[in-house]
Nucleic acid binder design. Sequence first.
DNA 1: CAGTCGATTCACT
DNA 2: GTGAATCGACTGA
Length: 213
Amino acid sequence: MIASPDRTPLAREFFDRPVLEVAPDLLGRVLVRTGPDGPIDLRITEVEAYDGANDPGSHAYRGRTARNGVMFGPPGHVYVYFTYGMWHCMNLVCGPEGRASAVLLRAGEITRGAELARKRRVSARNDKELAKGPARLATALAVDRALDGTDACTSDASPLTILTGTPVSPEQVLSGPRTGVAGDGGAHPWRFWIANDPTVSPYRAHVPRRRST
DNA sequence: CAGTCGATTCACT
DNA sequence: GTGAATCGACTGA
């Protein structure tokens, strides 16, 4: 039988661990987005770990800036960034505080509020594509920089909350190189996903952009 | 202060 | 499979 998802919020201690422990443990957890248009539940199916100043692929690699300040704060908070002039992506900060490590939420399954997500993701050809990819996920959940710094461990009146959900067994967790990460950071197998899940996004290697002039 | 590029997505061939 | 879209952050001078 299929266990019903646990609606208990994850404690902050869950996130106050090394990012490589937290990342695979987030698979199968449920992110709740509440807002004026209605609630959405997202079952997390794909993530990537970014390990602060030690990680050439991380936004925190060259230290604290105005954009990435939340990464240096307490675990369990949301780091949202804007990229390619069009898209937002969301992360969950891990521990210990100050290490600036975080997990990028790359894909998930919409388990509640699909009708609302479809309105925000008009180009999706089917429901499996609603949150297949980090920017699609943020679009489906209407996450932008206004939510940067949100505490995802506090259930009361928070627009974003992480629930216990139904964690997947280790045998169901696969790992590989991170998508679109350039240089040395691209070598680490720090992308984690649920085996055979249809909402997981395809892998793409980093492609350097062609020069304009 | 100008140049470069991005933890991407979509339309089109 | 290829290229465009689009702008803010960051870098180095």
